[in-house]
Nucleic acid binder design. Sequence first.
DNA 1: TTTTTTTGATTAAACGATTAATCTTTTACT
DNA 2: AGTAAAAGATTAATCGTTTAATCAAAAAAA
Lengths: 331, 331
Amino acid sequence: MERVSLKVIARELGVSTATVSLVLNGKNQNGRVSMDVSEKILAKAAELNYVPNSLAKGLKMGHSKSIGLIIADISNVFFGTLALHIQNYAEQQGYTVIIGNTNEDPEEMLKMITFLNSRQVDGLIITPTEGGEFMVKALLEKEKPLVLVDRIYPDIHTASVMINNFEISYRSTRQLLNRGCNNPAFISYKQDQVHTNERKRGYLEAMQDAGHHVTDKIKEVSYQNLQEDMDGAIEELLQMSPKVDAIFFATNSISISGIRSLLKKGLLVQKDIQVMCFDESEAILLFPFRVPYVKQPIEAMGKRALELLIGQIERKEKSGQQIVLEAELVV
Amino acid sequence: MERVSLKVIARELGVSTATVSLVLNGKNQNGRVSMDVSEKILAKAAELNYVPNSLAKGLKMGHSKSIGLIIADISNVFFGTLALHIQNYAEQQGYTVIIGNTNEDPEEMLKMITFLNSRQVDGLIITPTEGGEFMVKALLEKEKPLVLVDRIYPDIHTASVMINNFEISYRSTRQLLNRGCNNPAFISYKQDQVHTNERKRGYLEAMQDAGHHVTDKIKEVSYQNLQEDMDGAIEELLQMSPKVDAIFFATNSISISGIRSLLKKGLLVQKDIQVMCFDESEAILLFPFRVPYVKQPIEAMGKRALELLIGQIERKEKSGQQIVLEAELVV
DNA sequence: TTTTTTTGATTAAACGATTAATCTTTTACT
DNA sequence: AGTAAAAGATTAATCGTTTAATCAAAAAAA
C-alpha cells in the first residue's frame, strides 16, 4: 500500500503539489485556486485518507510542533497528573508532548535535554533537579523557549509556574498551632531547592511568630532512601521532650511515607499525633481519620506553563513571566 | 546563533556533506574516509556541538525512531509505571515515546491513533478500549507495527502482552475460600473486555469448584461514576444473606474505591470483611491490616511489549506473538 | 485592437540528512 | 612503464512539504 503524499493526490488529479498544498492548508484565499479544483482536492484527500507527514512539514517549517516535558518521575501521581493536563491541553493546540524522567538526577536531566533537542522540540517544560543550573543557563543563551514548573533556581531568571510555597506552608503550620498543637515538627527532602526551602521557611516563620524557637524539629530525608530515613527521623522526633505532637510533611511522597512510619509504630494518627500533608492522594482519603492537606492546583499549573511556553514559541514573547498560583488548605 | 547542520561542518572543513555524514554515522569502514579527515570531522562536530536533526533523518530514512503509547490515563499509577518503564527502555534503544490518553473512550482512541500516525510513529503500543476493534483491524491491514498490552480483543489476532488473568483470579479466589471465607463477592468494571472477563471467569470457576453457585455476588461499577456505583454495589452486597464475608476487587482503582466505601460504612476490614485487591498501591501499604493483592509484573510487561514492537519495526517480524506473564499473589 | 489586470495554476528551490553512483588520485602488480 | 586495483573523496538524487517567483490564459480597460 503506497503511502499517501501530496504527490499522490497531485498525480491522481493532474495538478501540481503546490496547488494541493495550498488548498489543504487553507491558503487558497483571494483567487489562488478555483473553487472547482479546491473541492476536487479536498475530496480526493479525504478519499485517500491523506495525513500530512509531520517530519517533512517540520523540516521545512523549522518547527516540530512538539514540546519536551522533563519531570522527576512519571509514576508519581503529582507528575502523572501534571503530565495528563499538559498533554490534553497541548493536543488541543496541535502540539505533541514528549516526556522524560530524571529521577532527580542531574545527569539524567542532561541526557534528556540533549535527547529532546535532537528531536527538535520547539520548547521545554522542566521541573529542574538540584545541580542543573548550568543546563538551564545554556538553554537560555540559546534562546530555547523554556518554562520551569514546580521549582526554580533562585539566581536564574526564567519563565516559571510555582505555587505560593511560603505562604501556604505558613498557613498550614498556623493551622496546626491553632488546633492546639504545641510542638509541630517538619519533615522535608534533604535538598537545596527553592520550593522545599520556602516551605521550610514558612514553617519556621509561623513557629517564630507563635513564640517558638525551633532548630531541632526539622528533619530531612533522602529521596533515594526514603522509608528508612523516615523511620529514623520519626523515631528521633518521638524521643524529644517536650513531646512532638504534630508533623507537617512537605511533599506527597513524604506524607505517605511518614504516615506509614507512624502507623508502623502503632501510633494513632490525629489522636496521639496530628499530621499535615502535601497533595491529596487516594491513600489519605482512605483513612478513617481526616487529614488536612495542601491541595496544589495541578491542572492550572500545567495549563499556565503551557500557555507561557506557547507564547514564547509562537509569539516570541520574552517575558520571563513568573507565575505564582495559590494552593489551597483543605481541612 | 546558526543552527549547526552537516552543511556547516562540511563548509568549515572544506569537505562535502556526504563525507561528514559517512563519518558521523560510523560508515567510514574499509577505506571510505581517511583517518585524517575522519578525526577532523569528529573534532569539529564535537566543537560545534552538532546534534543531528531527527526530522530530516526520519524523513530520509522513512522512520521516526519514535513510538506511540496509548493508555487510558497517565495519572493512574498502573499506567504511569508502565509508561515509565517503557520510556526508560525505549530511550536505551534510541526511541522516543509519545503518550496518548484515551480515558477509556473509543473516540479519544481514534483521535490519538490519527494524531500519532501523522507524527510518523514507527509503531504503537496500545491498551485498547472497548469498541476500538475496527481501528486495530485497520492498523493491522496497513501492517503498522502494533502490540496490545494489558488487554486484547478476543477475535483479532495481534501481538500482545497480558498477564494470566484467569489463573491468578482463580488462585486469589481460592485463597479467600481457603482462609475460611464462605461468601466472597467480586466487583469489576462494567465493561466487556477480555482481561475483566477472564478475571470474572477465574472467580466463578473457583467458586464452582468449591461448590458454590453464584450469580448475584458479582457486581459491576462504571468507570465514569466509580465511587457512587461502588457505594451502591457494596450496600447491596452487605444486605445479602447468607452474609458476604469477603470481596475480590478486580482492578487497582476499584480496590481503592471499594476499601474506601467499606471504611465509610464503618466496617473493619480483614475483621468484619476480608478483601483481595489488584495491584499494589501506596494506600494498601498504609493500612494497619495486611491486604493480600495480585502483583502484576509491570516492568516486564513494558519491556516485553517494547521488545515485540521493536522486533516488528526493525526485523519485520510478523510473529503476532501473544505473551502471557505470570502475576504474583502476595499475601 | 492592444494593453493591462486579474485569476489560476506551475516551477523550482529549500529544509537537513542519506547513499548509490561516480570520479580522481594513489598504490600495486606484471 | 603501463595497467589494474584500491583508496578516498564528491555529485546528485531523494524523502514530503512549503512558498516565493513566475507564467499563461482570460477578463477588463484603454
